[in-house]
Amino acid sequence: MSVDTATVRHIAKLARIAMSDADIDALVPELNNILGWVEQLAAVDTEGVEPLTAVIDQKLRLRDDIIDDGNIRDEVLANAPDAQHGFFAVPKVIE
């Protein structure tokens, strides 16, 4: 599988990274180079092999249903590029 300009542009859109045509053109061969390299995995026989789900075999722990966090609005908003009236502000979204 290899990617073309349109695919790279689509991926850039999915990843929300603005790219010029020149950026895209430069990335096409780079990505194809990497994809071509990783595709050697296709040759590995994985018949009947389960995908790895946990690096170290252990069970998911569950937390008790206790409120022990929150009420830290100032901390939550402290690093915001634009915080107004206790909210994060973003350019108007039309739904």
């Binding site: 937390r63 249903d65 206790i66 409120i67 022990d68 966090d69 929150g70 009420n71 830290i72 609005r73 901390e75 939550v76 908003l77 009236h85 206790g86 909210f87 994060f88």
Partner: peptide
């Protein structure tokens, strides 16, 4: 129906002041 959120210890009650029931995880 739960006191705290699915993956954090912040409260779930309806109608709180904006961004007060937010943990660092939720943000």
């Amino acid at each position: 129906v739960s006191n705290a959120k699915l993956f954090s210890g912040a409260a779930t009650a309806f109608g709180a002041e904006p961004n007060t029931q937010v943990s660092l995880v939720d943000a």
